[in-house]
């Protein structure tokens, strides 16, 4: 069943189009940087973008930082919003359920396929970033040491390891949005509504983060710790916010999936 869900996801042309578009933005940024050499000043613009002009290897992380605020969550919300509502919309949901596939099993398979998409997207963005960065930007040898955010030097092995951690962390950060879209996807028969609902959740969270009056809420907002992956490139690694971020996503995922499950297993399938 899980294999079938994955093949459905990755045989869909739209999935690949989404992944290509997701990679297009960082690639465009890399091309612009390479042709103009006008990097943002340190501390401004997306994280790491000022550093990539000297070392292209860092563009893997910079690419993640570029797609993280909007592009990546939109892609995740589209795919996760599709899961159940898309099947309902096309009518295939009823045929899957009478095949029969247990409702819990179907939900788990959908969840795993969404998670696979998230990880594939993040890895692909980081990979594309690395390749594009090596090709177009900062032609330092791979063995060169890199300055950490704290100013000390990191060996290439450390950078590689921390980039992998960052890839994992960004992936985990998307799970809250994915769970929200999946939950909404069990509520409605319209994939678009589920996607837009999840995006509203995301935009609401981002908005409240900028509001001083919402300070007391901020530790609980799903997007609060998204950019904490930057802390992985400090020396030594600053894990406090990363841990909080993972914990917070876990709580969102548990609550929303619980709600999705409770709703879906007792739902009358009328689509």
């Amino acid at each position: 069943m899980i294999g079938v869900e994955l093949s459905k996801l990755f045989r869909r042309p739209r999935t690949w189009l989404t992944l290509v578009l997701l990679d297009a933005l960082p690639t465009v940024v890399a091309i612009l940087l390479a042709t103009t050499h006008l990097g943002p000043r340190p501390g401004q613009g997306p994280a790491f973008l000022s550093a990539v002009l000297t070392n292209g290897s860092l563009f893997a992380v910079a690419a993640l930082a570029i797609v993280l605020p909007l592009f990546l969550p939109i892609a995740v919300a589209v795919v996760a919003g599709e899961t159940v509502a898309g099947e309902a919309q096309s009518g295939t949901l009823r045929y899957l359920l009478i095949r029969p596939i247990g409702r819990t099993k179907l939900l788990v398979a959908k969840l795993i396929s969404v998670f696979s998409f998230v990880m594939a997207a993040v890895v692909l963005v980081a990979g594309t970033g690395f390749v594009v960065g090596r090709l177009l930007l900062g032609h330092q040898p791979l063995s060169a040491a890199v300055s950490s955010v704290s100013g000390s030097q990191l060996t290439p092995a450390q950078i590689a390891f921390r980039t992998l951690l960052a890839v994992g962390y960004v992936g985990v950060s998307m799970l809250g949005v994915a769970a929200m879209a999946l939950f909404l996807s069990t509520l409605t028969d319209s994939a678009q509504s589920a996607t837009l609902g999840a995006l509203a959740f995301l935009i609401g969270s981002s908005l409240l983060l900028t509001l001083d009056a919402a300070t007391s809420l901020q530790p609980y907002l799903p997007t609060r710790y998204w950019l904490s992956f930057v802390d992985l490139f400090r020396d030594p690694m600053l894990l406090r916010n990363v841990e909080r971020g993972i914990g917070l996503q876990a709580v969102y995922v548990a609550i929303l999936l619980g709600a999705a499950w409770a709703n879906f297993v007792t739902k009358d399938i009328k689509s």
């Binding site: 069943m1 079938v4 093949s7 459905k8 096309s90 009518g91 295939t92 899957l96 095949r99 596939i101």
Partner: peptide, 21 residues
């Protein structure tokens, strides 16, 4: 009424449903 994945062939659709359960 029947329902299928429109971008896949009839054969692939039957295979997907058959493999699902």
């Amino acid at each position: 009424g029947p329902a299928f994945y429109g971008h896949l062939s009839g054969q692939a659709n039957l295979a997907i449903f058959d493999a699902s359960g």
